[in-house]
Design a protein around this nucleic acid. Structure first.
Lengths: 345, 345
DNA sequence: CCTACTCGTGAGAGCGCTCCCGGGCTAGTT
DNA sequence: AACTAGCCCGGGAGCGCTCTCACGAGTAGG
């Protein structure tokens, strides 16, 4: 069998067999060394490693996958019907965390994006068909059955953000939105503000609910402080502007506002300026997300930062554990948020 | 051989062999049908398709890869040492274009990120080792030999943005920066501005060079219009602020400024405000990139938009052509920019 | 009527790897 | 000295697919 010495494929990648020949051992032994099995003598291991080095051997992913029946890759699924994904650093940062954590394990990161309903269905097919060992799902909508469909299929899945309908044991990683909102609001209080309004997000999303809960929690038990001075938005700048106008109408004396997203905070600042209020002199503002925009507003926006990269890492770690253990459920992980102080308070 | 009926693997995926059995043909014929070969009779094709449908057959990627010696996937390589990648919509939008174009061809999108020098080296290894059929490289630095190293290796590579050192026939897709800058500057002129300054980017990057060239081109031949009223920045907000202060010092009478990035434009607006100038009444401002931030400044920033998603699609198309043709070089593609009018002019 | 060619098809031979069984060897036990 | 228990190691089998080759049947040409 000299087929190893077939035609010169240009950048011919050596195979296990060739390494084995060079090292004077068998294919099996080389495989054992490459995969770190302890069942190899020191001598054999050394000569194999030498041959590997010499020939520049790299295992063939496809062959390994075929033999092990694993895909050695995970999918990062962005199933966002809107096109404004990625305008926030959130995804990129998450992705970086995932990438970093994954690179150590040798798994590939396959990016899957779905906007249309048809693409959405394809994603499900794709993942179910075993092209990946597990999936990280971001920006999944509340009524989307995708995660459960995949779990039923036996595919390990991890989500970002607590799902609204808390399904039994759907693995997820989230930041402590309640505590973040509480800390932001408390900070306003500690800086002497007493009429603190809130612009919160949709109450059919866990972030919306949690951030409002945090706001209320911070004000609970404080004397002479209104706790229900809140208006609802949809996280967009326009909705923030609108909400702010309503709030000013309801209480022209308000001296601070907690916005559940930076975009809404930006809208609020615009409305405040239009109403002749100065930030932070007349009204202090805090946002949430610590987006890029927060750094460039005038004044720069104090905001709650989610450790997005860390969240990516945690999601990955969780997923790898699930994949290894062959399980599909595990306890959620909640990571702490941090208040970033800037000029708007 | 009943090994097809081995243990019930839960979600046992059917193999070619099983489909063949169900359809009453041989493996080879099924393969031909699945791969769209014309060498199949209508009868055979029909019964195979029926069996495929019935059993829910999906080809095993790894097996196919192994047999064809292709990876059936392309890498999207982000080799950015800085951590501020993805804060701009640029990457996300590019990625979306790539993803859309790729999904039609059935290739996988593998995301590879490299920040540290070590990761950087790993990326090269990774791509060279044939784990992917080609690579899309974004944010490659001028002195980075990565693209050429890969090309020498025979790997098809496509870059975003014209490389500084215009190397013979390195495939790339870029937007028409010269024309974009020219149009932006011309727009300022047409609105009656006559003392138009520029804040340009580093001149060791093609975007920096091109955008300055466009600015100069717009003003060339206009009487009584200064053409060298420019200061340099590094695309950051701080540098824009600094440059604006310098410009105001050099010409307190200037009535417009073209900034080669939105971030620098934001910095410029801040410096203008600090100097008591109103935007756009006293000084008009245009930016470049049409970033998310541009929409949220006060006033909203007029800016040049690059068709990033289209660029992603073009890059992908180019890469697929290269992969198919077995070539590594092709002519660049330049896509047009668009001026987005907002309140800052 | 025989040869030549085309067309659809079946089947063997891999692609490069892992897994597992069994054999040879050494060391420890009776 | 014979026997068992480990430890290494070799190599067969197989993962699911593509590719090539050859064969039989049909059609055309001489």
């Amino acid at each position: 069998m000299v087929e190893a010495t077939r035609s010169g494929n240009g950048s011919a990648r050596p195979t296990l067999e060739q390494v084995a020949a060079a090292a004077g051992v068998s294919r099996g032994t080389v495989s054992r060394v490459v995969n770190g099995s302890p069942q190899v003598s020191e001598a054999a291991r050394a000569s194999v490693l030498e041959a590997v080095q010499q020939l520049g051997y790299v295992p063939n992913r496809a062959a390994r996958s075929l033999a092990t029946r694993r895909a050695d890759s995970v999918a990062f699924v962005v199933s966002e019907p809107e096109s404004r994904v990625f305008t926030e650093p959130f995804f990129g940062s998450l992705l970086r965390g995932v990438s970093k954590e994954l690179s150590a394990s040798g798994l590939q990161l396959v990016l899957v994006m779905a906007w249309t309903a048809r693409e959405h269905a394809q994603v499900e097919q794709y993942v179910r068909n075993g092209h990946v060992d597990g999936a990280i799902l971001v920006s999944v909508h509340g009524d989307d059955p995708l995660p459960w469909r995949l779990m039923e299929n036996g595919t390990p899945v991890v989500m970002s953000g607590r799902p609204q309908l808390s399904h039994p044991s759907l693995p997820y990683v989230d930041s402590d939105n309640v505590e973040g909102a509480r800390a932001a609001t408390a900070h306003l209080y500690e800086r002497g503000r007493r009429r603190i309004a809130a612009i919160t997000g949709p109450q059919d999303m866990s972030v919306g609910v949690d951030r409002l809960a945090g706001y209320r929690k911070a004000l609970r038990g404080r004397r002479g402080v209104p706790r229900d001075l809140c208006a609802f938005g949809d996280f967009s700048q326009e909705s923030g502007e609108r909400a702010m106008r309503q709030l000013l109408e309801r209480d022209p004396e308000l001296d601070a506002v907690f916005a559940a997203s930076d975009m809404m905070a930006v809208g609020a600042m615009r409305a405040l300026r239009a109403a002749g209020r100065r930030v932070p002199d007349d009204v202090a503002v805090v946002g949430f997300d610590d987006s890029e925009t927060a750094r460039h507003t005038d004044p720069p926006l104090t905001s709650v930062r989610q450790p997005t990269e860390l969240m990516g890492r945690e999601m990955t770690r969780m997923l790898l554990t699930l994949i290894e253990g062959g399980s599909t459920t595990t306890d959620p992980v909640i990571v702490p948020n941090e208040l970033v102080l800037r000029g708007s308070v």
